[in-house]
Write a protein that binds this DNA or RNA. Structure first.
Lengths: 189, 189
DNA sequence: CACTTGTCTTGACATAGATCAAGAAGTGAA
DNA sequence: TTCACTTCTTGATCTATGTCAAGACAAGTG
């Protein structure tokens, strides 16, 4: 089984037959560092699973580049507004490193439901999970200090701090690079 | 048509027949000010549509009461983790005023898919929309000041500021009541 | 009615975190 | 190697926002 099959299987728990039907629709795709997976205002007509590498989801606000999220191995990746509602993408998604993806086109993605009985239901559960994750994230901004948000991310994803430029992590955590640097310094001592 | 039918129809755009099948499963429910719709740690086995009144979604963090969201007429209301994943509720949901709801039990909610062909698909779209809304909200914390967040909410939901205790709105916006009060003062002058 | 309780505002002050500016260290290209 | 560029850190300073404390109202209750 590829990582994709393992992941989909572990997450959605479906039959080997259905699993094949789905994963066959994904094609391997390779992107280089700096390449764009999606661009704000254009259309993102694909859904990908990250096999390796990291991608940064961001948008500009008054000229400033704000990182919304960083996606790495084991994550699904798309601009949801484009994929689901056929509208312009809200996000720039760009590779922070060379990346290997398993990618399905929007057209094929929309066919899955016709091949696999319970797909819409499973996808609904998946989206519900994503919603809960974002709810937590909102709550973190309502209830935590910059340092607490740092701790939270550090405990969960230590490895990011060795791989991802720190100013991107700072942005994603809602603080400046200087603040992140000072928090890190404090942790060492 | 009841508000519920109008809403579901406008949002999901389904046949009059299916519409009836669904809305028949909802029962009217009346709650009084201060009543709890859901409690953190318990199980919330229902999904409701708010006909009238306002409810506050909140949780405690280190003894402090943090408002995550306020739900009013035209919103659906539930603790998603309970409804979808049969786990303990993450949120307290309490009436800020007397409320009229249309409520469906979890059991009946789960039957909808069996009665209405495309239900899972429609619900998926609905959840995707919710996800996009939360994404915006996260972005607002990454990119906006307290005052900008206030402006944003004020433009979209002026009426809340006459109905909802301001300290709850402040909490939901991620600021203290004092800060909200000062921002408001500034706006008058 | 008086009394309690909750809401909202205001002022004085404290502080987390932002901004600005500079420099150190690493990386890649020529 | 040197130069340009990026990342990260550090110090000095500024400011938005938080904290604490008090008072003004308004609303509800016995």
């Amino acid at each position: 089984m590829t990582e994709l099959e393992q992941y989909i299987n572990s997450y959605f728990g479906i039959s080997k037959e259905d699993l094949g039907k789905i994963t066959n629709l994904f094609k391997q795709e390779v992107l280089q560092k700096e390449d764009f997976f999606a661009r704000e205002g254009e259309y993102c007509n694909k859904l990908s699973f990250v096999k390796s590498g990291y991608l940064r989801v961001y948008a500009f606000k008054e000229g400033k580049d704000i990182t919304q999220w960083i996606s790495g191995p084991g994550y699904f990746l798309t601009d949801l507004q484009s994929l689901v509602f056929d509208q312009q993408a809200r996000w720039n998604i760009q590779c922070l490193s060379d990346c290997e993806l398993y990618t399905i086109s929007k057209e094929n993605y929309r066919q899955i439901g016709k091949h696999v009985e319970k797909w819409d239901h499973l996808e609904k559960l998946f989206l519900a999970k994503c919603f809960l994750t974002l709810e937590d994230r909102v709550f973190s901004f309502l209830s935590m200090t910059a340092e607490e948000r740092y701790d939270h991310l550090y405990v969960q994803n230590k490895e990011l701090f060795n791989i991802i430029p720190l100013h991107n992590l700072a942005s994603m955590l809602g603080m400046t690079p200087e603040t992140l640097s000072r928090i890190r310094k404090k942790k060492v001592s």
